[in-house]
Amino acid sequence: MENAIEIRDLTKSFHNVLTKEDVVAVDHLTLDVPEGQIFGFLGPNGAGKTTTIKMLLGLIFPDSGAAHILGQPAGDIDVKRKISYLPETPYFYEHMTGFEVLDFYGTLFGIPAQKRKARVSELLEQVGLASNMHKRLRFYSKGMLQRIGLAQALVNDPRVLFLDEPTSGLDPIAHLEIRDLILRLREEGRTVFLSSHQLSDVEMVCDRVSIMNRGKVLKVGALKDLLAGQTTEVRAEKVSDAALAKVKEIAPDAFLVEDALSARVEPDQVNRLVDVVVQNGGHIVAVTPSQRTLEDIFIETIQQAGMPVADLSLEGSLSQ
């Protein structure tokens, strides 16, 4: 399988005028995205995801390194004919109607008028906005704008789509529809580069994921490989802080809420953990085997990189 996107040693820093320091947003990033897959690009806020996407689109320029999309340099005009982008909370010309804005974007691709008209109508139908096509965008709800955003990202029949939080602001039904649409894109052989905080969505649709923080990729791989293996959740009560310190030697992400312990360990570590809890005066409440989720992997990866969970800014979406 060929790579749709190849990133090699991509680096970008910004100068902070106030502190007079350079802040590295993307740090020697190397990444391959195979063609025809949905690739989840994850990371907490400020991890460097949007900066990476903007470099791939030629909106900003790397300090060093290189990126290729479909074998051509990122940012090249020929590449832009074959790709598309849905930014996070997209903003379009409000004076236009839904039809006009898609027609405008179609014109930028040089699509002939008749073909464009048919394509725009088809897309409006596809994203459920056919009945609102003559309404000005200033009267659209956030969800409707998101749908228009997705429609404009499909206007050129792209081979690679960059979607930044595509389900943001959508109601549950629209959310489901967009998720299905993303899956359909893969069935049609397109590559989707999906940046999202909705880890449940990513887990459901992605073939591969990468977890990024502070400009570096911490983990990358096929989702099924990352999720492989079971964990066991141990819950206990009357656990002291001193006991927690010992528990953390076995389960580093264990935490206390008042005196209630929650810890997740590999199955072969369960007995050891239970012993430590009981020997330190704790009462075991439950021992539950569970499948690892992407959320577990995400938190674990970021923590291992030395960033406490409390510092993660995920806008409360981890549990969604």
């Binding site: 689109l57 030629g58 982008y85 909370t89 903003y91 974007y105 404009q152």
Partner: peptide, 12 residues
């Protein structure tokens, strides 16, 4: 308003 993202990411 970031409209520029959807314009310059097209072949413009």
């Amino acid at each position: 308003q970031r409209t520029i993202y959807t314009i310059l990411s097209k072949p413009v």
